[in-house]
């Protein structure tokens, strides 16, 4: 149901190639929307698949785009990597109009990818996928000790937290002093 192509958010994207529709297509033609991530690759997604994302669903409902308008104005998600957006789009397509299973085994195994996916899914407000991802994150520390959890989840120690806090305070103090000096200079 989705396809990708090179394009930009400002210019109208070229016609994306669409995957074959399912045999039991509804009589009313399904509307499609376009999204792109940091890599500007445009993904064509059906409105049904986008229903998973509360953010995009809200945008669609408010905009009331026609097919042409939607094509001309793909939703830009500059904060999401292209491959991550592709993953999200694929998941939305796979679970379009279906009840979500209790577990999803197709989530990325690499923690870096999973981190980006959680950020994206949280931003796009896809509740079910966020739940799956968070379950996988929680599984990382199953049966681990506090020290191991600190290591796996990169949690700073209390000493590191205190040092960071001191540093932040120092920086804030310096910035405030700089601003005061600048204001005094302006006044002169």
């Amino acid at each position: 149901m989705s396809s990708t192509e090179q394009g930009t958010s400002s210019a109208a994207p070229a016609e994306p190639t669409t995957a074959p529709e399912s045999a039991a297509a509804p009589e009313v033609p399904e509307s499609f929307y376009y999204v792109h991530g940091k890599d500007k690759v445009v993904h064509k997604v059906s409105a049904g698949a986008l229903q998973h994302s509360a953010l995009i669903h809200g945008m669609i409902s408010n905009l009331g785009y026609t097919e042409e308008q939607a094509k001309a104005n793909p939703f830009p998600f500059e904060n999401i990597d292209g491959d991550i957006l592709q993953m999200v789009v694929d998941w939305c397509n796979q679970h379009k109009g279906k009840p979500t299973p209790p577990e999803d085994t197709n989530l990325p195994k690499q923690k870096e990818k999973l981190f980006d996916l959680v950020l994206a899914v949280n931003y796009l407000e896809i509740k079910e996928l966020l739940t799956y991802c968070c379950k996988q994150v929680a599984m990382m520390v199953k049966g681990k000790s506090p020290e191991e959890i600190r290591e796996i989840w990169m949690i700073p120690t209390d000493a590191e937290d205190e040092a960071a806090e001191k540093e932040a305070k120092k920086r804030a103090g310096k910035e405030a002093a700089g601003e005061t000096a600048a204001a005094a200079g302006d006044a002169k």
Partner: peptide, 16 residues
């Protein structure tokens, strides 16, 4: 690479 910076997530995701 094998670690996950949990506290860098948004609060909603951390809570989840």
């Amino acid at each position: 690479q094998d670690r996950f910076p949990l506290l860098n997530l948004d609060y909603v995701a951390i809570r989840e």
